[in-house]
């Protein structure tokens, strides 16, 4: 079937390249998908930007919206991390390398990287919502892109150390000289060398400078709710604070109607919004 004629509701064929658990409690699983058709691959990477999401399909189960957790330079694959939650994510967790899977995307707008050029980045993530921020960090780390941005400060909090994702990379980031990384867990654990506490508190403690900086916040709603005021307090302007939203989605194309926030659709107009934009929209989250 020629790819260009596919309807926007029809997923493209993909194959699971690697599948592995991300957390010690097996609630998070990472899937790396490769493209079955080279045209699809080209079309995907022509549009792809960190912060975007895709809809993964399991035939007979349905679709689930997941943020892309890989940067384009990593290779010809797309990475997702799914938390086991409902019907589809349960089916995703059952997949193993070699299994077929459907994917639609990339959807949404991703992070406005062009506007962020030459600025310092303050990246704040919590829990499994860190995936798109991981993609962002990876993207920025590439030598071709690194000089476009200033200093990177990363704050990443999880409930326990076991729930921390992408452990290998994050461990290596502590060694990097071009970034400052603060990891946090909610309750103390033995042998934990980093922060203990909730992300908003850690942000206040770390107090990143708002000077020529943008802050990106992705996390569970409760974390976002308290982190945004903390950033305002530190002096970040609402225009310089970004967050990625999610709501129940079906079509991903701004048609099925359920993910609206005022007159904006999270799927089509988002999922990344600045706090300034959010302030102008009703609090319908």
């Amino acid at each position: 079937m020629p790819n260009n004629s596919r309807s926007p509701y029809t997923p493209m064929p993909m194959r699971v390249l690697r599948a592995y658990y991300e957390s010690t409690d097996r609630s998070l699983k990472t899937l790396e998908l490769s493209f079955e058709s080279s045209e699809d691959r080209k079309a995907f990477f022509a549009k792809f930007n960190p912060g975007q999401f895709c809809l993964l399909s399991v035939a007979g189960k349905g679709e689930s919206a997941l943020g892309v957790a890989s940067a384009a330079w990593e290779g010809d694959f797309v990475r997702f991390t799914a938390q086991r939650m409902g019907t589809v994510t349960n089916a995703l967790h059952a997949l193993k390398a070699g299994d077929p899977i459907g994917m639609r995307g990339p959807l949404g707008n991703g992070f406005p990287l062009d506007d962020w050029k030459s600025k310092n980045l303050v990246i704040i993530g919590g829990g499994c919502a860190f995936s798109t921020l991981y993609a962002l960090t990876k993207h920025v780390h590439h030598p071709d892109n690194r000089d476009d941005f200033g200093k990177i400060t990363l704050v990443y909090g999880t409930r326990t150390s076991g729930l921390c994702m992408y452990k290998h990379d994050i461990a290596s980031w502590h060694e990097r000289e071009d970034m400052e990384i603060h990891q946090a867990i909610d309750v103390p654990e033995e042998n934990w060398l980093h922060h203990v506490g909730y992300v908003p508190d850690v942000v206040k403690e770390v107090a990143p400078s708002p000077e020529n900086a943008v802050a990106v916040v992705c996390g569970p709603p409760i974390m976002t709710k308290f982190t945004l005021p903390a950033l305002l307090e530190l002096g970040f302007a609402p225009e310089a604070i970004f967050t990625s939203l999610e709501k129940r989605m079906k079509c991903g194309l701004g048609k099925c109607g359920r993910c609206n926030l005022g007159h904006k659709y999270i799927c089509k107009d988002g999922p990344v919004f600045s706090l300034a934009e959010l302030n102008a929209l009703p609090a319908d989250l």
Binding site: A59, G60, G62, S64, K250, K255
Partner: peptide, 30 residues
């Protein structure tokens, strides 16, 4: 115009059905 997208396994089709924002499950997240 809101619609829901559902997989009908027996028919092997992904269908869309009219949906309504007045339903509880319309916006219920996983």
């Amino acid at each position: 115009f809101c619609f829901d997208i559902v997989d009908e396994v027996q028919r092997q089709e992904r269908v869309r059905n009219w949906d309504s924002c007045m339903f509880r499950i319309y916006s219920l997240e996983a």
